[in-house]
Design a protein around this nucleic acid. Structure first.
Lengths: 337, 337
DNA sequence: AATTAGCACTCAATATACGAGAGTGCTAAC
DNA sequence: GTTAGCACTCTCGTATATTGAGTGCTAATT
């Protein structure tokens, strides 16, 4: 990958992000002032395609970046982006309009982030997973079900009905209740790892089915009670030409409605460094998001950890989006608020 | 409007709801066993169109119901619908899956309602507008802004920055603060009517601009603090053939993201009787929802007033949707939970 | 050895024509 | 009052050309 290829790849990606149309050798030469003929570009393009950075929708179409191409762009080509004065003005106005409650209201924050980026904003937080389980109990409810009641140290009470498998007697349920109290009480939510849950299952000698259900419940609690998901700007996705296909849109929206899955996306792997991560297309790990990219940033906001994400098309304005998020990260966590 | 016309209108609407295609005289005769020839039907159809109950997308297409046609259908033709055993089974399963927290969790409730109806569900609640304003104050923040702090009787604190118009001095702000305390403290949120706010403006002798802003803020608070909007099933809309047009979808989704507007839709006019209302197409009062219909039901759930809405295409399965909501209304408020 | 001009070829997109099909309104017969 | 018959309308799908942007390859040029 020599300097010239990088230059060309850069030009192609930028053009494509701008126009959403496959870019050909001729147009590329015309738009950027590279001192090369289309034929040369064609050769380079063929190389880049072979290397996996570009794709061709069909023979005799221009090239579009592959996920790998975007990845390379984000990792090594892309230059840092600083919000323009115009953008800063817009940001300022939005912040002013939202008022001082902005950083404390995930909803407002989501609206704000969506307005700034023009993509879908996802906010998980404030994370509150330092709460611990004060009390856990199983209360008989009917012949075939018990209610699992969990009290957290902040006073929140969670309860959920669980069916009793065939052949489990009351004594066993009491035993499980004591077992759970012994093993889970006092644990902080963020300490409840899959490992602990596996241990739970291994250690308990009674009905596996039952302990399995409880373990699922607790896991769910740890993930979701603590995190509150809010999103906004979903309509923005419909502006993107690659989502003119209703079918595709529907898949994305259906996934977005699975709040838990999205939360996991945001919370898992907060990003390699300085709390910022970019996941491109298939890297997200969801089929329905194969044509999307996700920028995630985690930081402290009013003493609480907040994760905010921006979901857009894979053909995202990476530099701008990442630049904006960096700026916001700085702005909000610097205590300016 | 004689009996025969009603019969025909009914048949047309049911066919159209089912097929989403304009229905013609020939098909109508074939599908329903009416003892009439297509020609006669055609005459009747022409009459019904003249009366405003039907529309023709273009000459030489079949007829589709007009909003007025749907309205007539809902008001006088439609028969009561009782959920089928299959549906009841599905409902039961969904309720079981959600667990006992269902009625207390608007989110779960929304998911549930969307799954049951296959449309978009909107939940406003639990309504908490019996809270009263304990304390209201204006705190200087910078030269050009004050923070309006409002404390509610449940302990919630709301604050919002407000710009100070030119030429307003600190004394005036203090006066306004006292004025607000005198006039608003002790009021319940549901007592804050537009009338009261208008009185506020009329009585205050200082900067109108400022009191205007405050009044807006309080109104906003009364509407929105109390009500919490949650929705689900938005992806369901994309299944409907009339929303194959991205542009239309986008308009709907953009409106849906204006939470406040939607809240107003749900809260305003809870419905003529027994807390159930149906608004069809233009009746909703939003251009973007001109092709949608909204079913709203208000009832008490776990001692709290909850409003739930179902938003679908104007070509909605009215009987079924209304029947289901009625059933849920009964089920949840009967204390079965 | 790298670059480029030239050329044949490919393929999506667009326009055009055309027939099929479903539907209507109207008139005249039943 | 109802219906058969008919001419007419309009959408939709299919087939067919045309266009245009783009490619890969080869041979000439630098």
């Amino acid at each position: 990958m020599d300097e010239r290829k990088r230059l060309i790849l850069n030009a192609i990606i930028q053009d494509y992000i701008y126009s959403a149309e496959p870019v050909g050798s001729r147009t590329l030469v015309k738009r950027h002032r590279i001192g090369l003929s289309p034929a040369t570009i064609r050769n380079e393009m063929a190389d880049l395609e072979e290397m996996g950075y570009l794709q061709q929708p069909h023979t005799s179409a221009g090239r579009i970046p592959s996920p790998r191409g975007y990845r390379f762009y984000v990792n090594t080509i892309m230059e840092d982006y600083v919000p323009s004065p115009g953008e800063l003005k817009k940001i300022g106005e939005l912040i002013a309009a939202a008022g001082l409650t902005l950083p404390q209201s995930p909803r407002q924050m989501a609206k704000f982030l969506a307005a700034v980026t023009n993509y879908i904003s996802l906010i998980a937080g404030p994370a509150d997973n330092l709460q611990e389980i004060r009390h856990i109990n199983l209360v008989p409810y009917s012949i075939s079900s018990v209610i699992c009641v969990i009290v957290l140290s902040d006073g929140a009470v969670k309860h959920h009905a669980i069916g009793i498998p065939e052949g489990v007697n009351p004594g066993e349920i009491e035993a499980l209740a004591r077992f759970l109290q012994k093993n889970l009480q006092g644990l902080k939510l963020n300490e409840i790892t899959p490992r602990i849950l596996a241990g739970l299952k291994a250690d308990f000698t009674g009905s596996q089915r039952l302990v399995e259900e409880i373990s699922l419940l607790v896991k769910h609690l740890a993930l979701v009670h603590a995190q509150d998901l809010v999103m906004d700007g979903t309509a923005n996705l419909l502006k993107e030409p690659e989502f003119r296909d209703i079918q595709k849109v529907r898949e994305v929206f259906e996934t977005l409605e699975q709040g838990e899955q999205i939360l996991r996306l945001l919370v898992a792997d907060p990003g390699p460094m300085d709390g910022l991560g970019v996941r491109i297309g298939p890297e997200i790990g969801l089929d329905s998001f194969a044509d999307c990219s996700l920028v995630v940033a985690t930081f402290l906001l009013a003493d609480r950890q907040v994760t905010l994400g921006v979901l857009g098309p894979a053909r995202m304005q990476y530099a701008k989006t990442i630049g904006l998020i960096r700026w916001l990260q700085e702005y909000f966590s610097s205590g300016g608020y």
